[in-house]
Design a protein around this nucleic acid. Structure first.
Lengths: 213, 213
DNA sequence: TGAACGAGAGCGAACGTTCGCTATGTAAAA
DNA sequence: TTTTACATAGCGAACGTTCGCTCTCGTTCA
């Protein structure tokens, strides 16, 4: 048999990842055995190991795929989008991609694993770092447009936004009766309120280095 | 051999719990074997099983102890404490009791386990519920005093506060360079800002001016 | 054109290890 | 002697992973 076309191989890997994600979120990473995965995939261990070197490699690939999806999401945001809209957009993305119980379960599994596995921690830190960078830029732009207070430290503000939603995910995961959409909207408006309620720098004040549009 | 006094038994259980917490946070719940625990405790499996029926029972006891500690912390807050001060107090408690990497690691372990283990999920949901109840009450009182907007839905506001800090814990856990104290203070002030910036209902005393000391 | 080839996808039994847990033995105090 | 705390040894099961095998099918070449 000739070698699988690379794209075919990648497609199969993607299928496997999706199936693994389902298993891990249902049973947890450690309670899911390679046998479990093989059964749901209707695949033998030998075959599975042709695609991934180890169980850990599967998680790492999952994290990377998630990162890629968020990268795409961010790259679709026009530079001059109002902060409020960006937040709404991120909520929508989270709702589609993350705000189902089974997907959030994975989030916790990965987090827990990161506290114990340095390699996963490193990947996750990078992941969060990129995310924070993007959001920081969005906030900085909102400041330049005069949409929110320039007294706000952009980096900390970005961390704040991400923390709020991470925390909401936390609650949602073990209390699915939480009304994600309503709460997320409220969170958005409160965040915006906090960010725009700070004493604004005098309008005419020349910014100390940041360029203006 | 005479039967252990109950208080002695409880004390020993507490010691065991502390040691287990250390192990779990270092290696993770699933990677820590009962053998590991026995070694660090200089104790045989037979002895350990006299104190806890199973590995799961150890986690449940850990969660319960944590809940009890927060209960005490909350019960020490006078009814008329300003919201800002309550938030500061909670930050301090969290800093003492939670804001070390090893303690936060446990938080993730438990969260991850809760997504997979219904019994743990139930306990944790109750735990969070109580916590939210307490905070909701604090917020309600602050509204009655006219300290913050009465347009604020107290329950959602409580969820918001908890979410913010949970999210901060998330970040801190895999990026210990995060300056917990500074960020926590900023979070506090932003939360307070958001809560007091809403249009106030006419019934409450319109303290629209600066309310900081 | 079609038979022979052989690389590679997939299979699945089995490996050695480690798991949570327990049956049994023993020393010591009452 | 009886009761209790703990040690010891080890149980059966399950783990992640491996490896030799089968089968398939595109390629090669007569």
């Amino acid at each position: 048999m000739p070698k699988q076309a690379p794209e075919r191989h990648e497609a199969r890997k993607a299928e496997i990842l999706t199936a693994c994600l389902g298993c891990f979120s249902r049973k947890g990473f450690h309670r899911t055995s390679m046998r479990d995965l093989c059964e749901t995939l209707s695949m033998s261990p030998g075959a599975l190991y042709r695609y991934f070197d180890s169980k850990e490699a599967i998680i790492l690939a999952m994290i990377d795929r998630d990162r890629a999806q968020w990268e795409v999401a961010f790259s679709n945001i026009p530079a001059n989008t109002p902060l409020q809209e960006v937040l709404e957009g991120l909520t929508d993305i989270a709702e589609q991609g993350c705000a189902r119980v089974e997907d959030i379960a994975i989030f916790w599994q990965v987090m827990a694993e990161a506290t114990v596995n340095p390699e996963i921690a490193a990947v996750l830190k990078r992941h969060y770092g990129l995310f924070t960078d993007r959001l920081e830029l969005v906030i900085r732009r909102a400041q330049e447009r005069g949409e929110i207070s320039t007294d706000l430290p952009p980096r900390d503000a970005a961390v704040f936004v991400i923390s709020c939603f991470d925390g909401l995910l936390a609650r949602f995961s073990f209390d699915p009766s939480t009304d994600w959409r309503t709460l997320a909207r409220r969170f958005q408006s409160w965040i915006h309120l906090a960010f725009s309620s700070l004493p604004m720098a005098p309008a005419a004040k020349p910014s100390t280095g940041g360029k203006r549009k």
